[in-house]
């Protein structure tokens, strides 16, 4: 089976949303800032619930925030 990984556009979406800080996003979705850092760095794949909370915080569909791409693929 092809190896894939969860990628996200959180950093881009934060800047598009009035340059929202990591701390503000963390507070909005109920996690720590360290978790947002890990998410943006692609080191942590969130639970489905957290993924939905993040997409709700940005007011965009889930697939605009997260994608499931082959490992090593360039964005």
């Amino acid at each position: 089976m092809e190896k894939r990984q969860v990628r996200n556009n959180i950093r881009k979406l934060r800047f598009q949303n009035n340059e929202m800080t990591q701390e503000q996003l963390a507070e909005k979705v109920g996690v720590t800032r360290q978790t947002i850092i890990a998410l943006e760095g692609g080191k942590y794949a969130p639970s489905l619930e957290l993924a939905f909370r993040i997409s709700l915080a940005f007011g965009v569909p889930l697939q605009e925030v997260f994608s499931y791409e082959p490992e090593g693929a360039e964005k």
């Binding site: 507070e27 109920g30 996690v31 720590t32 360290q34 978790t35 890990a38 942590y44 969130p46 639970s47 957290l50």
Partner: peptide, 9 residues
Amino acid sequence: PRFITDERD
């Protein structure tokens, strides 16, 4: 202080 724990913790 926001000493919360989340799913990653």
